[in-house]
Each structure stands twice: as structure tokens, then as C-alpha cells.
């Protein structure tokens, strides 16, 4: 309201390709982003029996199953860390990523009514669907901290780097999520491809096995999967396994940023005609 003195001028014309307004209008409407996140968190577990506990049940059950089959039966190496902790540490960012992808890829299509009827920065929709997973993420992280002393693992000083890896997990989720959400607006095939993609991606990421299985230079190349960098980063900062993930992390971070930027470009391009094609 304080900008009332300056006449606000809206110019309407046909644009193609990326326009900076995709991002700048999000800043103008930043409260809307909070409200969307707040709504998604609030609504996520409405009318469920165990509610928020789903955030913990998911990684815990996955951990139990993986520990039995990969840890006990297949005797998967785990960098000298008790397998359950080893695997759960990876599951914390992984489940955040997997949920973010499935929520985000559907987010735009699910909001088609809004997109067709109201003007607002549409970027807020996929963004909020990823960020609203933060609460689940935090809960599952708390469970990890409870679990660690139980298995005799204590956190190392490297834990100060954890926020960096969390940021990388978020960047990767938003980057991939934006691509999928935007593609889903044009091709509904995405809806069917995503569950499958997530499943494959799980095994392509070092969740049930350590990336130390790979010798260099393959390990650095493995970093092309940005989740490899995220997962190994989590393990290194929380459990102190191996060496700091050097080149692999650098590769992952680069790929993650590339995904994010191209995702925003692609989104901005499609945003112009979204109301017509959704």
C-alpha cells in the first residue's frame, strides 16, 4: 500500500521465452508463497489417522526393510557404520526428494482452476509444494538424532556443513520438480512416469549402498546424479564417513544448479501460455 504514491503501471503484451517477471512477481507476492506453504503443511495430513507420524513412519519402515534385505542378508558394506543408521541417514534427504518430486510434478495441474481464473505468480505453486516438505524433513532428522546414540554413533564437527547439503537437497528438488511440473502441464505422461522415475532414481543413488563402492574417476562421474552428492554429503557431515566428498560434490552441485536454472527458464517459457494449455 505504501507504493500508492507511485502509479503502478501494468503493461500487457505478448511475450515469448524467459521474462524476469517470473521471479520478480514472486517477490511482490512473497506472502502468497508463505500462505501456500502453510496451506500445504496444514492440509497434508488432514483426515488421516496417524497424521504427522507419516513423516517418520515412511523412512523408518524403509530403513527396517533395507536393513533386513541389504544390510543383513546381502551384507552390503556400510562404511563401518551400523547399517540402519547408515541407510536412515540417506533416507532422510531421499524421502524429502522423492515426496517433493511426486507433490511438485502434480502441483500445477492440480491448481489448474487457480491458474485459469486468477493472476498470481505461478512459480509459487511448485515452489511451495517442495518447501512444504520441510516439516516432514525436520521431523525425520530429529528421529535420526535420537537414533544415533542408540547405535553408538556420535555426530562429528562436520555437522556444521549440514545446512549446505540441506540447501543442495532443496535446490535439486526444486530444479527437478520444476521440470516435471512444467512438463506435466504439456504432457500428462509425466504423471505415470514419475513414480517409476523415483523408483529407479532410488537405486541410482547411494541410499542402500555406499558410493565408496565406486573407484575414482567413476565416483566423480557418479556425481552427475545430484542426489549422490546430497546423500554422501549427509553421511559425511553427520556420521563422518570417508573423506569430504570433493569432486563428486562439486559435480553434483553444478548439475543441481543447472537443473534449477534451466527449470526456471523452461517454466517461464511455458508460464506465458499455461492458462491456455493446462
Amino acid at each position: 500500500m505504501n507504493d500508492a504514491s507511485l502509479p503502478h503501471i501494468t503493461t500487457i503484451r505478448s511475450h515469448k521465452g524467459f521474462t524476469f517477471s517470473t521471479i520478480s512477481s514472486l517477490w511482490q507476492y512473497h506472502e502468497l508463497l508463505y500462505f501456500f506453504i502453510w496451506r500445504d503443511i496444514k492440509v497434508r495430513y488432514k483426515q488421516t489417522i496417524v497424521g504427522m507420524s507419516w513423516a517418520i513412519i515412511q523412512p523408518l519402515l524403509a530403513m527396517i526393510v533395507f536393513s533386513i534385505f541389504f544390510g543383513k542378508l546381502a551384507k552390503m558394506p556400510s562404511d563401518n557404520i551400523p547399517y540402519p543408521v547408515f541407510c536412515y541417514t540417506a533416507l532422510v534427504p531421499w524421502i524429502f526428494f522423492a515426496n517433493a518430486l511426486s507433490q511438485c510434478s502434480e502441483s500445477l495441474v492440480r491448481s489448474s482452476d487457480l491458474i485459469k481464473k486468477i493472476y498470481f505468480p505461478k512459480l509459487a505453486i511448485p515452489l511451495s509444494s517442495v518447501l512444504s516438505g520441510a516439516v516432514d524433513f525436520a521431523l525425520s532428522l530429529v528421529v535420526l538424532f535420537i537414533m544415533m546414540p542408540f547405535f553408538g554413533v556420535s555426530p562429528t564437527a562436520e555437522i556444521i556443513w549440514l545446512p549446505l547439503f540441506i540447501l543442495l537437497a532443496i535446490t535439486t528438488s526444486i530444479g527437478v520438480g520444476l521440470w516435471l511440473a512444467t512438463l506435466n502441464v504439456i504432457f500428462r505422461d509425466v504423471r505415470y512416469a514419475v513414480p517409476f522415475l523415483i523408483q529407479l532414481w532410488l537405486y541410482a543413488s547411494p541410499v542402500v549402498y555406499p558410493s565408496s563402492l565406486l573407484p575414482e574417476p567413476w565416483r566423480s562421474i557418479y556425481g552427475i546424479n545430484p542426489m549422490a552428492g546430497v546423500v554422501e554429503g549427509f553421511r559425511w557431515s553427520l556420521l563422518g564417513t570417508g573423506n569430504p566428498p570433493g569432486t563428486m560434490l562439486a559435480v553434483s552441485a553444478c548439475i543441481s544448479l543447472i537443473l534449477l536454472f534451466t527449470g526456471i527458464l523452461f517454466f517461464s517459457r511455458v508460464e506465458k501460455k499455461m492458462a491456455d494449455i493446462i
Partner: peptide, 25 residues
């Protein structure tokens, strides 16, 4: 600004609010 014009342009002075359908959202 929900959809773009194919041709032409328009200019609006002042904050714009639109009620195209009540209750969406």
C-alpha cells in the same frame, strides 16, 4: 494477465484486482 494476447497491447494504471470466479482457491 491470466492469458497473453496474441497481438496488441494494453496498459493499466493502478493495482489490478480480478474476480473472474468467486471461490477458486
Amino acid at each position: 494477465q491470466i492469458t497473453q494476447p496474441t497481438n496488441g497491447h494494453a496498459e493499466i494504471k493502478g493495482r489490478v484486482g480480478s474476480l473472474l470466479e468467486v471461490g477458486t482457491g
